[in-house]
């Protein structure tokens, strides 16, 4: 046999070729970057993280002031991202479950409503929906002088929503002060738009995942359970749901990660999440490389951690094939 027809030789040669092409491409890109940076007199480094950020973050669950350092601004942005992701995931799961139940109803009205909802929210871009909700809560709501007051203690204005808050000494109602409402819970228009938009969008997908999971369990399973004399509720809880969960969990994981990724669209409505902080930092310091590096690092870490956790859980509920 000719030496270049040898399988082993080809395998090694091909791998060497692929590896050197890949490494070469990376070296070429980094070389160009270094040359361009040097030409523009830019320095690379994470020193800027220790400097004062000097830009405002309109709202956050961690305390922040513009004199804080850049690294803290990033942490605050990350805190907001995780916060909105978690509450959206919870809300969307509840809404999705309701949608799935609605679409499984033996009632054409309920089915129609569920189907319309799912088709509409799944077939339009999330950005359009977010911008719509944002416009609705800023332009669409009345000014603070004539707020919409659908329930006692609930005020809808173009500056945000004012709701009664639970505190140690009972309900804390928002009270009209000279310029604003005081007390109670104040949700900014940006937060409301993000929360509404992301939850309603994700609910459509989660609803379909749950419904698909329930339908994928063969009908015979439920029928057999009923034939064995189980009550409908027992058949649901003991036969249908455990089997459906196996099918539901993997797509659910990617849906939760999608919520996290979609939360970066906060940039469009101006909710200060991590992408907003990154964009502002790059604008202020010009440290584009470092800013994007941090953003990528954060997303890789969270995505990988989530999928590892979900894989572990999945391994526990998965069918044991022996």
């Amino acid at each position: 046999m000719v030496w270049w027809r040898d399988q082993k030789f080809r395998a090694i040669a091909l791998q060497l070729l692929a590896a050197s092409a890949f490494i070469g491409l990376i070296l070429w890109l980094t070389g160009n970057t270094a040359a361009n940076l040097a030409k523009r007199g830019l320095t690379v480094g994470f020193d800027f993280l220790g400097r004062a950020a000097r830009f405002p973050i309109s709202e956050s669950i961690l305390s922040y002031s513009p004199t804080d350092h850049f690294w803290w601004a990033y942490t605050v942005g990350l805190g907001n991202t995780l916060f909105i992701t978690v509450i959206v995931a919870l809300t969307a799961t509840v809404l999705g479950l309701m949608l799935a139940i609605l679409r499984r109803e033996d009632n054409p009205l309920a089915q129609g409503a569920g189907t319309t909802y799912v088709e509409f929210f799944r077939n339009t871009p999330l950005v359009v929906q977010l911008l719509f909700w944002y416009a609705l809560v800023t332009v669409g709501l009345p000014s603070i002088d004539a707020p919409l007051n659908p329930l006692p203690g609930v005020y809808l204005t173009e500056r945000g929503l004012y709701l009664p808050a639970l505190s140690l000494n009972g309900l804390d109602m928002p009270v009209r002060a000279k310029f604003n409402f005081e007390g109670g819970l104040n949700l900014s228009p940006e937060f409301v738009a993000m929360y509404l938009g992301l939850s309603l969008y994700a609910a459509a997908f989660i609803g379909e995942i749950i419904r698909g999971g329930l339908e994928a369990v063969a009908k015979g399973q439920t029928e057999a359970a009923l034939a064995l004399g189980l009550a409908p509720k027992q058949a649901l809880n003991l036969v249908l749901i455990p089997q459906a969960l196996r099918i539901i969990i993997p797509p659910m994981t990617s849906q939760y990660i999608n919520i996290l990724k979609n939360s970066t669209l906060a940039l469009v409505v101006g909710y200060p999440d991590i992408s907003f902080v990154t964009a502002t930092t790059i604008n202020q310091t010009g440290q584009a490389l470092e800013g994007i590096f941090i953003l990528m690092l954060v997303f890789f870490t969270i995505s990988i951690a989530t999928s590892v956790a979900m894989n572990l859980y999945n391994a526990r509920v998965a069918l044991k094939v022996r």
Partner: peptide
């Protein structure tokens, strides 16, 4: 690597970094 990132950050990378990464 690509699937772990939101499209938004990919757009960021390409719009900000690509001009830096290519020859002047």
């Amino acid at each position: 690597g690509i699937r772990g990132l939101p499209l938004l950050s990919l757009l960021f990378i390409v719009s900000i970094l690509l001009p830096l990464m290519l020859p002047d």
